[in-house]
Simulated assay, not measured.
Amino acid sequence: MNPNKVLFVDDESNVLSAIRRVVQDEKYMPFFAGSGAEALTIMEDNEFSVIVTDMRMPVMDGLTLLKIVKEQYPRTVRVVLSGFTQLSQMLVTINQGEIFKFITKPWTASDELLPVIQQAIDYYNLQIERDTLTDNLAAKNIAYQNIFKAMEEKKAQEKSELRHLYKISVLLFSLWKKNIAIVADKSADQQIRQDEIIHIAEVIYLTYLNQLPTIINSRTSSALISEIITNCDNHLVINNISKEELKTKGNHNYLVMMFKILWHILPEKQEKINCNLVQNKQSDGRVKLDFSIDLKDYIFAPHDENQLKIACALFNKIGAFYNMGVSLEYVEKELSCVHINWEISEV
């Protein structure tokens, strides 16, 4: 901890010299000024614990100086050392300058000056400790409030996810029931294809369960693109059309999961698949991401197309919880593109 600083102000050089001799062995750092103006100049570059000033000085008297110090440096403890002891003036000084102590001249070092200065320093240190404790308590209080708020938000999110999960489960059970009801009327080949569709639903459902509870994190555009490409075995080429580097906050894991599953259920693996990303800032401060996966080079059998439709339907059902959507685009009745849209908060 830095030593306390004490400023002594008096227009009489012999008084300052006497004070200098008395305080030279004290633990605090003494400073000396011969006028109020000089004192204020020194105070601009130093943080003083205590100021000790004479009252009767030319140009700027002690009362004027103390009023300025009170306004500009309210923590500095103010002490008067003066031979001017008229009661009315002393009361004005005490009331307007909020004086800690009033020492009259002539003074004794051991009985008056040094004890009063030490008391003033102790009082200053107590103020600093109090203010530090108050600031620390306020900071901790804010931190605790933020923790409690985050916990409440997490609980609310988990409850909402459970309700959403229930709806997804109802959808899957409905799908399985339909499959059981019609499987007896199908050929063996059709039953195999139906089982594959159920398998797609199972993969999506279990992969989604595995990434719960939802992790809300932040990603830059380039980091998100890199993560998607890595999870698609580096076969996806994503072109950021807007060329803008944005930072978004949301459930990026679910978006990556959709890309990964879509890539793995495509009927045949191309060496490279093109995907365009368009980023649009909305008026409400959110960002709309539009991924367009080019499928024009693929030839889809009805079974493969049905798998993709089932996957997109499930992705939409789950993704609605996160403001995500998936749609298929057809050109002349041929599957041409998969669109993945996401409205997300910008950081």
Rank of each mutant, 00 (worst) to 15 (best):
E196S: 10
P267R: 02
L40I: 05
L126C: 06
D233Q: 03
K247G: 14
T220G: 10
K281H: 12
K281M: 09
T134I: 06
V326D: 01
G319P: 07
S88M: 04
K140L: 13
N234A: 12
N231I: 08
S336C: 14
F8G: 10
R56D: 06
L162F: 15
A184Y: 15
A156R: 12
S336L: 11
N125S: 11
T64I: 05
L266Y: 11
M57F: 14
I228C: 00
G250M: 03
E98L: 12
D54Q: 01
S169N: 13
N276C: 08
A143S: 07
L91W: 09
F48N: 03
A201D: 03
N217K: 04
K288G: 13
L209G: 14
G97P: 04
M257F: 13
E44Y: 13
S49R: 06
D195K: 06
E38Q: 11
I216T: 15
K70W: 00
F315P: 00
N46S: 12
V9Y: 07
N316G: 09
V116W: 02
A150K: 05
I299H: 13
T104H: 06
C337P: 07
N341T: 06
E343V: 15
I238Q: 06
N231E: 10
N234H: 15
H164Y: 10
Y123W: 09
M57Y: 14
Q89Y: 14
K27C: 08
K149G: 09
A109T: 10
S218Y: 14
L114D: 07
D189P: 10
A184D: 14
N4A: 15
